[in-house]
Computed example of a mutant assay.
Amino acid sequence: MSVQPDTARALADAVLALGRSLRAVVFTSGETVIAPALTSVLFVLSTRGECRQNELAADLCVSQSSLSRQIAELVDAGYVLRTADPHDKRASRIQVSHKGFDVLRETTERRAERLRAMLDGWSQEQASAAVTSLLQLNETFTASVQQRNGRVQSAAPPQRPVRTEKD
Rank of each mutant, 00 (worst) to 15 (best):
D6N: 13
A10S: 10
D13S: 11
L16V: 07
A17Q: 07
A17W: 02
G19L: 10
R20E: 12
R23V: 11
F27L: 13
T28S: 15
G30C: 06
E31N: 12
T32L: 15
V33W: 03
I34R: 01
A35R: 11
A35T: 03
P36V: 04
S40E: 12
V44K: 09
T47V: 08
T47A: 14
R48A: 06
G49M: 02
N54L: 11
L56S: 00
L56F: 03
A57K: 01
D59F: 05
C61M: 12
S65M: 08
S66C: 03
L67A: 00
S68Y: 12
S68R: 14
R69I: 04
D76R: 12
Y79I: 01
A91D: 15
R93F: 03
Q95H: 06
V96C: 02
F101V: 00
V103I: 15
R105F: 08
T108E: 14
R111T: 02
E113S: 10
R114K: 12
R114A: 10
R116N: 13
M118A: 14
L119Y: 08
D120Y: 07
D120S: 13
Q126E: 12
A129E: 09
V131P: 01
V131S: 06
L135M: 08
L135R: 14
Q136A: 15
N138T: 08
E139P: 00
A143F: 06
S144P: 01
S144C: 12
V145K: 07
V145A: 10
Q146T: 03
Q146Y: 05
G150D: 06
G150V: 02
Q153C: 05
S154W: 00
A156F: 04
P157K: 08
P158V: 12
V162K: 01
D167H: 11
